[in-house]
Design a binder for these strands. Structure first.
Length: 213
DNA sequence: TTGTGATCATCT
DNA sequence: AGATGATCACAA
């Protein structure tokens, strides 16, 4: 936490220099750059692991793009979904719950007028779901997974879920992955992932920093 | 090829 | 403006 908090106020250019990496020439084409930069700065071993970023601490690291008012600009990716196996995975044993059990959020000031190099890192904050928040997440999870188990994945849109939603996650819309239909027979679908809605992380931010409105 | 890092681009 | 569906780069 001390190391994470010490990053507050640094621009992306300053942090990249400290870490010894070059800023991308075309940031819009390297969407994961900021996330990987912070991982390097804080010593995350492997960014492609299916477990938490800091396994010893049980902590998942997430950057969170925020606007000038401190509101999240985007949803937050949680994890990929195995459409065949998730039907048999309850909330308690889910990868979603595991990843969200403790999250180190790093707000990044991000808006149109602010050049990439000049964007600043905000104050890190460590979040674990309150009982109420976990209830909301569990409800969404059960709803979403229930629909997958019912073979409704191809009809499942992103509006389902109060705090957490399921959205496509692939290189392009032509990618398919294995799924099951209502009878449990093999089928195919667009790959999906769980995301936290910006409205949900925004509420977490307000609670953490007691922002007005 | 798959999963993680996300933001982009368009529609409502 | 906010949300949804699509897309881009990287690592193992």
């Amino acid at each position: 936490m001390k190391r994470a908090l010490a990053l507050a106020g640094l621009t992306l250019a300053e942090l990249a220099q400290r870490v010894g990496v070059a800023l991308p020439a075309e940031p819009r084409r390297d969407k994961g750059f900021v996330g990987r930069l912070l991982e390097r700065a804080l010593g995350v071993k492997s960014s492609a692991s299916a477990v938490q970023d800091f396994p010893e601490l049980g902590i998942e690291l997430k950057t969170l793009p925020v606007d000038a008012q401190g509101k999240p600009r985007e949803s937050t990716f949680v994890c990929h979904v195995d459409l065949v196996r998730i039907a048999d995975c309850d909330w308690e044993r889910s990868r979603v719950r595991h990843k969200l059990s403790r999250v180190l959020f790093l707000p990044i000031e991000t808006h149109r007028e602010l050049p990439f190099a000049q964007r600043r890192i905000g104050s890190a904050w460590l979040w674990s779901p309150s009982a109420d928040e976990e209830n909301v997440l569990r409800h969404d999870y059960d709803d979403l997974v229930g629909r997958i188990a019912a073979g409704e994945i191809n009809e499942l849109r992103a509006h389902v879920g109060q705090a957490m939603q399921l959205r496509p996650k692939a290189a392009h819309a032509g990618v398919r992955t294995r799924s099951n239909d209502a009878e449990g027979a093999p089928a195919s679908a667009h790959p999906r992932a769980f995301y936290l809605r910006a409205s949900f992380t925004g509420a977490l931010l307000q609670r953490a920093f007691a922002l007005p409105e």
